[in-house]
Design a protein around this nucleic acid. Structure first.
Lengths: 188, 188
DNA sequence: GGTATCATATGATCAAAATCATATTCGATT
DNA sequence: AATCGAATATGATTTTGATCATATGATACC
């Protein structure tokens, strides 16, 4: 378990924001102001290409962080959109940078957070390299990606939801997974 | 340009290693000892799945670094294989951690290095989400991925090399790229 | 209670990339 | 010079996932 690096920050520097489903916390190309901690709810980082098809790059749930890398960037590189109501705490860029100057312990923990992200992205890229829809879906479920809807799972792993439904059905037929209800599949 | 964070480290803590094509610097699941700086040559980080098909996760050339995230990990998560002869400098995990304790400037620069990686991986995931072989190949070339062989480009972007060759040919026919020689394609 | 919306689910069709096959060229090695 | 291996290149075939269409169950909202 990674210790929370931000417990080291002065509390008055943070402020809590209540969020509703659909709320936009920031958009691509906007000037960065800081990173966020998710207290409750869910926020996804996504990029929309020319033709409306959105791509989920990160999904932060309760206890998670997002936009950590923005601290070293002038602009945000994706949209942050709330997909589940809750609240987030915004931590200002300047606070992070000054905490890194003054507190080596904070530095190490914050850096660790980024290192974990790097490894997560590597795993994700490895997952996307799996050609077969069935195999990719299985790997995603095993990796814990399936914590919401099938459609959400499908978009995260670059599959059409139809292909994902079929993959889940096949995995059930193969005796690798079981359907425990409408839209509820679990590994055996 | 990112300042080199490692100029802050004591030089006697590093040692240069000459590498030949095919050399393995570390393998997946080996205990981490540190990160590397590429002086010359090329090293790829790759993971091999059950069935021999290798996946390139990172490619470090002269001036680059690799295995930065290993500083916070017990084991390496992929293989480091030399694809072009040259030399690398190994920087010990303990040196990084102690430098982070004592030098806030180093901390910031090292963290920045990781933040850049996070953004690169995000871009890569975005690239992989492009369905069309032609579009994906074009995006990859524009992003500077094509600096070696077509086969290497193809594997990096999860395409069969045949599909990649065809994509390049189509892009030439479309007047978007030009063939300037055997296995040499450039953007117009 | 009725309606709208969304996730679930599956069938049918089509486009496109993987795969298989094969030929050529280049560079390295013997 | 001959051989080998690897990259380049393209054609033919097959597989498979995207797309389109459609139906249903659940939830939210008025």
């Amino acid at each position: 378990m990674i210790p929370d690096p931000f417990s080291y920050l002065p509390t008055d520097a943070s402020r809590t924001i209540d969020i509703q489903k659909g709320d936009v916390l920031f958009r691509q190309n906007e000037t960065t102001s800081g990173l966020y901690h998710v207290v409750s709810g869910c926020v996804t980082l996504q990029r929309s290409s020319e033709l409306g098809n959105t791509l989920t790059l990160h999904r932060a749930v309760s206890g998670g962080y997002f936009a950590e890398a923005s601290v070293f960037s002038m602009i945000y590189h994706c949209d942050a959109i709330c997909t589940e109501a809750g609240s987030v705490v915004k931590i200002a860029k300047t606070d992070i940078l000054s905490a890194m100057q003054s507190d080596p312990m904070f530095s190490e923990r914050f850096t660790r957070l980024l290192a974990v992200q790097v490894q997560q992205y590597r795993s994700h890229i490895e997952l996307l390299a799996i050609l077969s829809a069935k195999e990719r879906t299985l790997a995603a479920v095993q990796a814990g990606y399936y914590d919401s809807t099938v459609i959400e799972l499908a978009t995260r792993i670059n599959l059409s939801h139809e292909a994902c439904y079929r993959a889940l059905r096949t995995l059930c037929n193969d005796g690798i997974m079981t359907k425990i209800g409408r839209g509820r599949y679990v590994l055996l």
